[in-house]
Amino acid sequence: MADFRPLLTLAPRGAPSRAMAYASPIIALALTLLFGALLFVALGKDPVSALKVFLVDPLRDKRAIGEVLLKTVPLVLCALGLAVCYRANVWNIGADGQLILGGIFAGATVLYFDVPGHTIGGVPVLVMASLAGMAGGMLWAAITALLRDRFNANEILVSLMLTYIAQQLILWVVNGPLKDPQGMNFPQSKVFSPEFLLPNLLSGSRLHAGFVVMLVLVAIMTVFVFRSFAGYRLQVGGTAPAAARYAGFSARGSLWSALLISGATAGLAGAFEVTGPIGQLLPSISPGYGFTAIIVAFVGRLHPVGTVFGGIVMSLFYIGGEMAQSRLGLPSALGWVFQGMLLFFLLACDTLIDNRLRWRARTA
């Protein structure tokens, strides 16, 4: 498993290091596009035309832009919580499982009220579904926190394994208690009524109101991390337990707070997926958003605002891979290849920058 810890070199060591740290994602993205062009040449495609299909065509009109922004919602929501975790030195790899649990809880909430003769309006149900999704993600993250706190279990392995359990759990749910009896025996719930779906923001696109909620949470998380005592305490408790104990902070509190925040944002992402573009419970509510959000968080330098930039880039890779498959006859996994290259170059840039700064510090 890749070690993401070198990416924490974004911690400021003075103005030059901060500037270089924030330049690292730009350099990594440029290298990704360069080597991506070479990959297209190796596959027998014109690199300029292929990159146009991959990166420009997904932004060709309002509807296409809406699709790009739509995919940023789950990516950024998951990345927000992961950024808090990683700043607190808590290595949560299970955001995808927490997203799935959020989707299950939110879907079950909607299905409970989506019956003939219901008297509660769509907006209250959507609010309850969103809160239920956050509760589901927090519950799943709390298992990791409990095992780490009580038994010192490795949170990387625990959160990762819980993701696979979540995938099996949603399979059981859509084949059992929440299965659509009129669904021709397909593993799915019934389609939610239109009043229980998030309203659209752009006519002619699927971009929904969850995008606005995402932007609000980005602002809230920025204030929490950089302008609140609670955020400062959380980071100190995770990265410097001895100093935290001396100051009266709780390292256990940092662990629980970071994982519960991460679970809540990932669960909300799952709730928005089932009440937004999908409109029902399916086994495939997440094509790996929680794992991609790890890259999003680090491309954004573990900064809430930066995750929006990272989310847009990863969204382009998702949609670009699909367009490359349909228009160029290339494998749909091409988007994952670009994501992997971006992570590799980001790790390389951060490592080289960090080693260069350490060498300069020793020779100064």
Rank of each mutant, 00 (worst) to 15 (best):
L157V: 15
T9L: 11
G321L: 01
M214F: 10
I120A: 09
G103S: 11
L59G: 01
A264F: 05
M221F: 07
D350L: 02
L316P: 01
L29G: 15
R227H: 13
F113P: 03
D96G: 13
M314V: 15
W336H: 04
G107P: 10
H303Y: 08
G335P: 01
A15K: 14
A153P: 14
A324F: 07
P116G: 05
Q339C: 06
F345Y: 06
P331D: 05
G103K: 04
L10E: 08
L202G: 03
A166I: 09
W359T: 12
A361Q: 02
G253P: 04
F186W: 10
M314W: 09
R233F: 01
R13L: 14
L215F: 05
T275I: 11
V236Y: 00
A166Y: 13
F317T: 08
F186C: 04
R148A: 09
Q280L: 09
V225G: 02
V223M: 10
K52D: 13
D3V: 11
A297I: 13
P287G: 12
D180A: 08
G248V: 02
A135E: 12
T307A: 14
V125L: 01
L202I: 14
M214K: 07
S332Y: 05
G133S: 15
F113H: 11
F345T: 02
M138W: 08
P58I: 00
V68F: 09
V191S: 15
F345Q: 01
K62D: 11
L7T: 13
R5D: 07
A129V: 07
W91N: 04
S193G: 09
N154P: 02
A266Q: 03
A361E: 06
L160C: 04
K62P: 12
G263A: 05
V90T: 15
D350S: 14
F35V: 15
Y164P: 04
P181Y: 12
K190Y: 15
P287A: 10
P277Y: 03
L157G: 06
R358I: 08
T363D: 12
M134S: 07
L342N: 08
C349W: 10
P181R: 12
I261M: 14
E67I: 03
G97R: 06
R5A: 11
S262G: 11
L201C: 06
S254R: 00
A142F: 05
V84D: 06
Q167S: 09
F344E: 02
L260R: 04
V274N: 08
R301V: 12
Y246D: 08
L268F: 01
A333F: 03
D149N: 07
L328P: 04
L334R: 09
Q168I: 11
L99A: 08
Q280G: 02
P287E: 09
T351E: 02
F309N: 00
M214I: 06
Q325M: 01
M214Y: 10
L69C: 06
G306W: 11
S262A: 13
V84Y: 10
G176S: 11
F309H: 00
R233I: 00
R148G: 03
G340N: 13
